[in-house]
């Protein structure tokens, strides 16, 4: 069982979370070329090692998170809120 330290709920089993996939994908503008969209939707680097991926805490706060996880050892290196605005607020709270 992987344990994910949700910034809102604390450390929980991964079975509480839904897996989103590669979190490093940047989607192109809506009027971008078919090639650019094919690349974003279908093509993956498929890293063996540490990759950034999205997880949703579906059985908890329902927030989307960005998790840095090793795809070979399953070790988790960092967890943060996926929404940059939410992440900034959480970080500020933690510092104060």
């Amino acid at each position: 069982m992987i344990r994910i330290n949700c910034p809102f709920c604390g450390e929980r089993d991964h079975s509480e979370f839904g897996y989103g996939g590669d979190g490093s994908i940047e989607y192109p503008p809506l009027d971008a070329s078919a090639e650019a969209w094919t690349q974003a939707v279908f093509e993956r680097e498929n890293i063996r090692g540490v990759q950034t991926e999205s997880w949703q805490h579906v059985s908890g706060c329902r927030q989307w998170l960005l998790v840095e996880r090793d795809t070979m050892t399953h070790e988790i290196h960092s967890v943060r809120a996926a929404h940059s605005g939410v992440a900034a607020v959480v970080e500020k709270e933690q510092q104060s």
């Binding site: 991964h14 991926e53 070979m72 050892t73």
Partner: peptide
């Protein structure tokens, strides 16, 4: 197992 992995071992859920 519902998440990407190269490890040849399974999870308990």
């Amino acid at each position: 197992d519902w998440y990407k992995s190269y490890a040849q071992r399974g999870n308990l859920p």
